[in-house]
């Protein structure tokens, strides 16, 4: 199967200049390959660096070293070496990202918030809004809320708007940061369906799923994310390398 995303040699440390210049190593020499139609779950204890790795894959965080190779419009591009305008284009059409929290935009209604990424990616406005309506319906956002700005919505409702926004474009690569964290069982099941449908379309999914049921339902394998503090003699921390581990 086609490899959609290949990260190699990824190393990330944070230097906190405002706190006495403390250096926090997060991960070192990480290699991760994700194929089309595959869902990889980033796994490890809280603070292990799962979110940092996921954000790095979106070029939201800047790793100190390594490459993130993605197929973008038929070409292989290194996300970390790409110019800012290129990253903007890659995010528009190739890599989607669902964060834990919706960054609300003042005065923009939920339906428009959801439709926006599709319109930016060239979908006709009517079609984008029709898709947004379908997604909001599936995620049980009552129609009377669609025209309202999500700032006043509950946490779970905001999260579902966020998920709809992430699934409106058929991205070849989709990154999910705890998409079901504040959802009830029915909505969790809908998110599992959405992920399954994306996988069938050939989307490569990388996610953090704390909920065991969701993880078992969608993940094809676990990718252990561990501490970078103890590199082995080969210079590689084998804690991170657990490529073939299967879901229990």
């Amino acid at each position: 199967m086609t490899i959609r995303l290949h990260a190699k040699g990824l190393t990330k440390t944070f230097t906190l200049h405002t706190q006495g210049g403390i250096v926090l190593p997060v991960f070192d020499d990480v290699e991760l390959t994700v194929k089309a139609g595959e869902c990889v779950c980033l796994h490890g204890p809280s603070g292990a660096g799962k979110s940092t790795l996921l954000r790095s894959l979106y070029a939201n965080y800047k790793p100190d070293a390594g490459q993130i190779l993605v197929k973008h419009l038929g070409q292989t591009v290194d996300l970390l070496a790409a110019e800012p305008w290129e990253v903007v284009e890659i995010r528009r059409s190739t890599i989607g990202y669902v964060s834990q929290f919706l960054r609300v935009i003042p005065r923009v209604g939920a339906l428009d918030v959801v439709a926006e990424p599709a319109i930016a990616n060239g979908m006709p406005v009517d079609e984008a809004k029709a898709r947004a309506r379908t997604l909001l319906t599936r995620l049980r956002i009552p129609e009377r809320l669609w025209s309202l700005a999500p700032a006043t919505f509950s946490g779970g409702e905001q999260q579902r708007v966020n998920i709809a926004r992430g699934f409106i474009v058929d991205y070849p690569i989709l990154l999910l940061d705890e998409p079901t964290a504040s959802l009830d069982a029915a909505n969790r099941a809908t998110v599992v369906d959405l992920i399954d449908e994306a996988k069938i379309r050939g989307t490569a999914v990388v996610g953090i799923f704390h909920d065991k049921e969701v993880r078992n339902a969608v993940a094809d394998r676990l990718f252990e994310v561990g501490k970078a503090a103890v590199p082995s003699s080969s210079g590689k921390s084998d804690l991170q390398m657990s490529a073939g581990a299967m879901v229990e």
Partner: peptide, 13 residues
């Protein structure tokens, strides 16, 4: 997907 296959799309001037 190897580094040798890396090609950049032409930037807008």
């Amino acid at each position: 997907m190897t580094a040798s296959a890396l090609r950049k799309p032409a930037p807008k001037p």
